Amino acid sequence: MKLQHSLGGLENLGPVNVETRVFIEPWEKRIFGIHTVMMAESTHLSDALPKYPVATLPTTFRNTWTWASLRTGAEGMQPFEYFKYRYYEKWLMGISQFFIDQGYVSADELAQKTAHYRAHPDAPLPEQPNPAIASQINDYLAKGDSGLNALIQAPRFEPGAEVCIADPAAVDHTRLPGYLRNKRGVIEFVYPGAYSYFVSTGPDGIGKPMPVYRVAFKAEDIWGKDKSEPNTTIYADLYEAYLDTSN
């Protein structure tokens, strides 16, 4: 997560939006649905723990699309542009650019369709029922795709161990919240097995499956005593690559 995606603890950013609705506008549900369908058809599911018949699905979509794909697209936005748009608008831009980059649609075709539906908002959308894909989506929603793997080597840390969070070089995508870098915490739980991420983060350290830990932090050690409620604990699930014993 680059700066604009990891704002915890930064001051003078204005009031926090406490909106509790998942979808504010009806079109946001459709964007979420498109993303879900793409994940349910993603080629990486051939290697998921629940074995999916991705290779035989009657679809022209033949790419890998995961949460990492969506996040990488959003994180690639220019920071000032990022703050201009709503949550699902960022999703829409990332998904649209992916389809253009992969050749499923051209920028001109997308612009023409956009202009058409802006001029005719009640125009019917394409309707192509596909029972096989509908079944695949239902299976995916029920079973998901897990990054769990067999543990190859013993975890470096045990519950109760004090650790210092690493500060790796910034890369295109990271799973380490910026506000935890160089902070000290205590291992509370070691998750069984080993976990990989959907994509390698390169120099950031996430690649092959590794242990994952639940780490507890005192809020005052992160935000400072004058900005923290007393006796408050912050928990974070972190890959082993982000943990060290040095300070």
Results as ranks from 00 to 15, higher is better:
G14T: 12
G76M: 05
G8A: 15
Q97G: 06
D167Y: 08
V163K: 02
N63F: 02
Y140I: 05
G73M: 04
T114V: 04
D237H: 13
K218W: 05
A74Y: 08
T36N: 08
P50L: 02
Y213C: 00
K218C: 00
Y197V: 01
P53F: 00
L148W: 03
Q112H: 13
A161T: 06
R181A: 10
G144I: 10
T114E: 09
A194M: 07
K227A: 11
L10E: 14
K113G: 02
F80D: 15
L70D: 01
M38P: 09
N231W: 08
G144R: 06
K227H: 14
V171A: 14
E240I: 03
E188T: 08
L10I: 15
R62S: 08
Y191R: 11
P230T: 11
G207H: 05
W91L: 03
A132S: 07
H35Y: 08
A194V: 02
V105E: 09
P126L: 09
D221Y: 05
F80K: 15
P58Y: 02
Y235S: 00
D139K: 15
Q136M: 12
N138A: 15
E75M: 12
A123E: 07
H173Y: 12
A123P: 04
D204L: 05
G33I: 00
D204S: 09
M210G: 03
A48P: 05
I100M: 12
L176T: 13
E109D: 11
P79G: 03
S246N: 09
M77N: 04
F61I: 04
A40L: 07
E109A: 14
E240W: 06
L13I: 13
P15D: 10
F32A: 14
A115V: 06
T43N: 06
F198Y: 11
I133W: 10
K143I: 01
L70C: 13
E127A: 08
F61R: 01
W27T: 03
A40N: 00
W223I: 09
D101W: 00
S246L: 03
A119I: 08
K183V: 01
Y88L: 08
L70G: 01
P58I: 02
T60N: 10
R71D: 07
V16I: 15
I222Y: 11
I222N: 05
